[in-house]
Design a binder for these strands. Structure first.
Ligand SMILES: [Mn+2]
Ligand SMILES: [Mn+2]
Ligand SMILES: [Mn+2]
Ligand SMILES: [Mn+2]
Lengths: 219, 219
DNA sequence: ATTAATTTTTAGCCTAGACTAAAAATTAAT
DNA sequence: ATTAATTTTTAGTCTAGGCTAAAAATTAAT
């Protein structure tokens, strides 16, 4: 069945909210991420339920069906592959690609995305470290930790980010924090949970808890 | 001012119809190319006139303003650059790219199309031989002839096509007619104006007047 | 257990962009 | 110069996807 641009954006956001939790998700949480009002979300949830892409009981929250999830994953696959294209081939920085990919993810073509995948040499992750779903909708569970959970004196590798707002990514770039960086946790201040880090052999930097929470690492 | 997808498609089609003629163009001719009904076209023409992108007097036809033309040219630039990308980088055939470019031409980003242009090495023509407008909206007038106008025994070079429907392009491919081919007009049948051609050193082929009309050549 | 606060849904309205049917203007044919 | 045919516009309707304001359900607080 055909999907409209609005429907695709809703499914993608519902997917993100379902990730991590078993609970059905709320109308309000969707409204926040779509920048729509709750009443508009209710309307759309009824349509999506009608099409069989979500299960929805009024007042009881919503959840993707298997079909809904596979549609969401195909949009996410397109989003992330286009991001790789923008960074690897066109020379964009990782903080510049989100808005453009937000548009490109809706281009509809059976063949296009697979040719793009092949042109890019079948990347496994996007410029933010997020895994790229396969054509069959498989997505590896990478099991990264938030840097804020890493213990004192442990060393880890920066594998991804939990947020892709431009200002956040620009801050990381300024701090010399990029994918693959080796990080050692030198200090954790109990007052505000800010963290002191050593990146490779350079001199230590300070980051807030808020930043540490949004950095994904592998021990 | 922001342009919607529907408006962009209208402007592009009005541009195509204005090309070649000095006359204002008719509501019906637009309706045919957009696959909309004349009444819907009238609605849109009023909106476009309101925005200052066309001049329009009811019952008297329509014409692009300078601003309207420059918007149309920027869409055409995007369409053609994406077609080059699809053929040159992703390996599509020239008959497969039109529909996809029809979507990609509406991606909105100041920087994207210029980075793409640079990535493709600033191509001057698209896979169908059509010139690519510059960033400033300059488009060279190539002054090609239709193959149907070429005189008996003259030799010419295939420079483009006047129609990009998939079946037409597939026919050309089957006949071994591609951009750059050297063509000699061996025969013109007065009965149906069909043409016999020699391509390079190979044995002659026959094409209908309808086909010859849609092939663009340089003497 | 009520009451209060919060969340969600319904009802009604709006705009973009399509449509059909009918009216009006233009163009062509007697 | 009328009349007929064609084209174009208007009027009214529809759907998608938003909105606000009011009603209903759920959840939290006395
Ligand atoms: Mn999107
Ligand atoms: Mn990403
Ligand atoms: Mn288009
Ligand atoms: Mn083309």
């Amino acid at each position: 069945m055909a999907t409209s641009l609005a429907e695709e954006n809703y499914l993608k956001i519902i997917y993100r909210l379902c990730e991590g939790t078993k609970e059905d998700i709320s109308t309000n949480s969707i409204a926040e991420l779509t920048n729509n009002k709750a009443a508009s979300v209710t309307d759309m949830l009824q349509k999506l339920a009608e099409k069989g892409w979500v299960t929805y009981q009024k007042y009881q929250g919503v959840r993707l069906t298997n079909i809904g999830e596979s549609i969401a994953l195909s949009i996410i696959r397109k989003h992330r592959l286009w991001e790789v294209f923008l960074v690897e081939k066109l020379g964009y920085n990782w903080d510049e690609v989100h808005e453009i990919a937000e548009q490109l993810e809706h281009i509809e073509s059976e063949t296009l995305i697979n040719k793009l995948d092949s042109f890019l040499d079948f990347p496994k992750i996007d410029p933010h470290g997020d895994p790229i779903p396969s054509q069959e909708g498989e997505i590896p569970e990478l099991g990264y930790l938030h840097l804020s959970e890493v213990k004192l004196n442990e060393t880890c590798t920066l594998m991804g980010v939990a947020k892709d707002s431009a200002v956040f990514l620009q801050l990381l770039t300024k701090l010399n924090l990029s994918l693959g960086a080796r990080l050692e946790v030198l200090e954790i201040n109990t007052f505000d949970r800010s963290v002191s880090l050593k990146i490779a052999e350079e001199k230590p930097i300070f980051i807030s808890h808020e930043v540490a929470k949004n950095i994904l690492v592998k021990i």
